[in-house]
Design a protein around this nucleic acid. Structure first.
Lengths: 337, 337
DNA sequence: TCCGCCTTTGCAAGCGTGTGCAAAGCGTGC
DNA sequence: GCACGCTTTGCACACGCTTGCAAAGGCGGA
């Protein structure tokens, strides 16, 4: 069987007895076509199984409709829920998501952005890593919009959506103190992601302002296993902590499991724990974790609104930052409340 | 600032002092270009920030390099890990993933496949829902490859990758019996997904073969909360089950939490539980769930190998099914072992 | 020196679209 | 009947690329 090519507008035009431009106009909202012509075109298209070639259309209009999502460790709960929200929002705006995986290696994000350029993506959303300045400049010069989510960067042009991590870290401290905790600790990974580090700094700084010390431990990548290791280190210290703020929920789950099963400690009676992100697992009753909810839906909405804004609305050169508030979700891993 | 257009091969050609076709050939592996010309082209391209326009290239070569991933509830652990593996494999083959979200509504998958056609995707991988026959025929006729993962369908053409759910269900039964369980139950959702139903049927049938009954409960969507509800129903029955096989791990986590925290039962002493998928959370020590591991890496590898196979290798009309074995991961939620 | 072969290069056609421009069709008011 | 304005349509070009084809150039053998 010969794999016949896709149906083209030409064939539809012939079947409908009109010119090829009529077909094009029939599929362009707001174009000048009579109702009668449009109907005949649509009928012919339906019969032939015609679908507008978005590649060719993008070639003409300079708008591919593609938005590139650049992300690492997609399997992670928080990341995947964000991706889910973003793709959904993009589809609502008639755009489509292209997914590029990155790893921690050098230049990985740059390569990803190059893919975005290859496919003439209208925009890119970066959820992991930080691209080289020269690459982002290239993207911007070519009219690509850029959104950085929870990234530290101060170049003008891209939209930055950040959480107020530091402020949140300060709030959790008062919650710990109100619960009567005296020995503070912070559990982190070695990833060094800007948001993770901001949470650490915010917590340590807020404690220092009250003249308190924080035991900080970092280990491995930002996941459950690392949480277990960190907890083991923290809970065997001479001064055993009675409150651990974790850089994210997965670490917190690991910390809680180590504390309970390995050290036979009771949470929250002997140890208070808090996390960050409010992933689904935080609400599971085995953890019932007090944590900060990232406004995922709002992040997605704002990001896509920026990307889909008509040309001229946004001008490069402007430094645009959106600082969002993380809401404290109070559950049972801290006493009182 | 005028948003200058992307650099074209024409401009590179002028700067390098060669023809436009020379530029094209320089970027086409295996084309006939002298080393000297290629070098000059590459230098000019680098200086100008030129990137081949894959949209235009796809228009010519009839290979866009795009593979469409069609999936619902992407936020789910199993789904996201599969997506992660697939995009990674695709990138390794020089292809790129396009992500389309679907919901449970009618025609949602069909619309997704239409997107795949619009962008002239080389192939589509369907992880959720089942497309209408006419649409899949359209895809195949246009030379698109199709992969269905854990879907029930018997049309010739697409590659089907399925788990041997029924066989696995039978194996878990013997594990329950060896642990001394007598009151069997199955926890399911109302999603009615083929794999979920196959697991249910397999378990019930295997029990029936031994003259045993299975209490089946289904509720809501396939997640943690549904697991809790189902457990509540099962554990308040006159004949309280002492073994629950759950259609997937999320349900199992909900079941375990309800059993322990709500009914104060001990797992595995009073109740044995098993799940399916081996998501990360199953290994967390709060659950320590015995479950079946889906060979995610192998699924991704096989799917992409099929998609990337050179034309002529695969012929339509053939019914191609890959039945994979689910490995039992033995942990602490079943006695003995 | 001439011929034939092989490598390299440029020309031009074509992929499937959108769209400006001009022509055509048509209805209206005088 | 005619001039005028509005809607609709077709023509043709452009978008950025690949590739078949033929011409050009280099080189060795007779």
């Amino acid at each position: 069987m010969v794999t016949k090519d896709f149906v083209s507008a030409q064939e539809v035009a012939e079947k409908a007895g009109v010119s090829r431009s009529a077909v094009s106009r029939a599929f362009t909202p707001g174009a000048s076509v009579s109702a009668e012509t449009r109907r005949r075109v649509m009928d012919a298209a339906e019969a032939l199984g015609y679908h507008v070639n978005h590649l060719a259309r993008g070639l003409m209009t300079n708008e591919s409709g593609i938005v590139c999502l650049i992300v690492s460790e997609l399997g992670t709960p928080f990341r995947s829920s964000l991706i889910q929200a973003l793709t959904q929002q993009l589809q609502n705006c008639g755009k489509i998501a292209m997914l590029v995986n990155t790893d921690r290696s050098d230049g990985s994000v740059d390569r990803a952005l190059r893919q975005a350029i290859h496919y003439r993506a209208d925009a890119s959303i970066i959820l992991s890593g930080l691209p080289d300045k020269s690459i982002t400049q290239l993207c911007l010069k070519n009219g690509q919009r850029l959104v950085l989510i929870n990234r530290d960067d101060d170049q003008p042009g891209p939209l930055r959506i950040n959480l107020d991590d530091q402020e949140a870290a300060g709030r959790i401290l008062t919650a710990f103190l109100r619960a009567g905790c005296r020995q503070l600790a912070f559990a982190n990974s070695e990833a060094g992601t800007p948001s993770l580090m901001a949470r650490e700094r915010g917590f340590v700084a807020a404690a220092a302002a009250l003249g308190m010390e924080v035991a900080v431990e970092r280990h491995g990548s930002t996941g459950y296993e690392a949480g277990k290791v960190v907890a083991q280190r923290l809970l065997t210290r001479k001064e055993r902590p009675d409150a651990i703020f974790c850089a994210n929920d997965l670490l917190a789950c690991g910390v809680m499991d180590a504390a309970r099963h390995q050290f036979k400690m009771s949470v929250p009676d002997q140890l208070c724990v808090a996390g960050f992100d409010d992933v689904e697992q935080a609400s599971w009753s085995s953890y019932d974790l007090t944590t900060f909810a990232q406004p995922v839906a709002m992040v997605a909405r704002e990001a896509v609104a920026f990307l889909a804004a008509p040309a001229g609305t946004v001008d490069a050169g402007e430094v645009r930052t959106l600082k969002l508030h993380a809401e404290l979700v109070w559950r049972g891993s801290i006493r009182g409340g």
